[in-house]
Design a protein around this nucleic acid. Structure first.
Lengths: 238, 238
DNA sequence: GCTAAAAAATGATTAATGTCAATTTTTACT
DNA sequence: AGTAAAAATTGACATTAATCATTTTTTAGC
């Protein structure tokens, strides 16, 4: 597997390492024992904005988009999650409604831990609370970077930055030369960037002409991530 | 004091109630005892993005902007904090650099708790860890709403929404009829909205013509918050 | 209260991005 | 492989918002 080579990446990515990696074996087992696994089909929703959490979710396999539907039908993807990430725990911890929805992008295996059980686990094992706290606070910093970047940068810069995130999320699709293949609809891509599909397509066209990417049907091959990163112009992210 | 009348407000506001309000008296005292108070002059920085936290801060008195400086010199204000709020605790908890800076907008009194002491307090009093967790997770949900809203809505909608936040932050400047007086530079206002000062000024002009606000020098009187809220069009926030 | 400096406001123009309509390509299914 | 539906792409145009230049107003210090 190709390792995350760029320190900037972690300022925009929730977690490169699986969430449990820091926990002692016995805790991992306790956690796994409480988890109910469920299969989801491509496109299916895991939870929906405005409802209250009944527990938290863990991505065992697959990719998930966290998104928000806006008045007027537009969608904004807040974040792409992949294997090893927890879902919906901020709303669980705040005891508030989900601010966003989660839907699987590919067929997926999702673990569920009901809140009653999780509360007991947190009470019994301080490490679990600490892990949640550590993750949440990291993700908080990521959102701060996302806000500043997405509000103030041009769409071209945002598309380039989005490639950094996608590069990370799809790196298991990497080939020997380090090129990564992205499999994502233009609509979802545009909804991450926060732009119209047509605008995204035009920028992809530009990047293709500049030899930074290649397209194979809807799939996109990242050919020159360093240059894309230069275009993203994100040395202001900490 | 005028109470927050709008349920939408809390989806965009970190905390209306002072952070300690839920804690038992004895914990409040312990916390207060560890706090070193310091005076800050208008414009002074409390901490700077890219550095590591030495502890956390508490706003005893005054208003603080949390902002990020972007390549090219632009500034994006992430959030306005006021009396009773904690600062810099996400970076403290994640043990990472501050993603943003904090500067006082008015002369202010800020409490500081060094990290060594805070770690001991958290260890001794579970309520403190829980309080931090609860706050952070709430703020996380707020940032999700902010992202979707500020990326996808027009500047006019964002200005209207910003009035909701300012209404809350400046409500101690309210008069008998519920109108609230905002005292903030156009530049800071524009940096919250994420737009150019000129664009902001033009929109303020429009709102004035529509009788939603009045200006008194740089100060702005909110006259019709309900209508501004309609313009903001944020019934999509949970 | 007067004055210089800073901030706010206005005007003209340009650039970026969104929208709508039409066409081409790809995908999924038989 | 053939075909209908969905997705991607392209083109023309409208709209929004940024930028630059200038004027007016406000603020802070004497």
């Amino acid at each position: 597997m190709i390792v995350n080579t760029n320190p900037i990446a972690e300022r925009f990515i929730f977690k490169s390492a699986p969430i449990f990696s820091g926990l002692p074996e016995n805790i991992k087992e306790v956690f796994a024992a409480q988890m109910v696994l469920k299969q989801f089909r491509k496109g299916q929703n895991i939870f929906t904005e405005g409802t209250y959490p009944a527990g938290i979710y863990f991505i065992k396999k697959g990719k998930v988009k966290k998104y928000k539907t806006l008045n007027g039908g537009k969608e904004q993807i807040i974040y792409l999650c992949s294997e090893g990430e927890l879902l919906g725990y901020a709303a669980f911890l705040s005891e508030e409604r989900y601010p966003d929805s989660a839907a699987v992008l590919t067929d997926a295996t999702i673990g569920f831990i009901p809140k009653e059980k999780l509360l007991i686990l947190m009470d019994q094992h301080d490490e679990i609370s600490k892990m949640l706290m550590k993750n949440l606070s990291h993700e908080f910093g990521v959102l701060v970077n996302v806000i500043a970047t997405y509000i103030r940068k041009s769409v071209r810069e945002r598309v380039a930055l989005t490639f950094l995130i996608l590069h990370e999320k799809f790196k298991d699709n990497g080939n020997e030369t380090g090129e990564v293949l992205i499999d994502l609809s233009r609509e979802d891509f545009a909804n991450i960037v926060g732009t119209a599909v047509e605008t995204l397509v035009r920028l992809l066209h530009d990047f293709k002409e500049e030899n930074l990417i290649e397209t194979q049907g809807r799939k996109i091959l990242i050919k020159n991530m360093p240059q894309l990163l230069k275009i993203a112009n994100v040395t202001d992210a900490f």
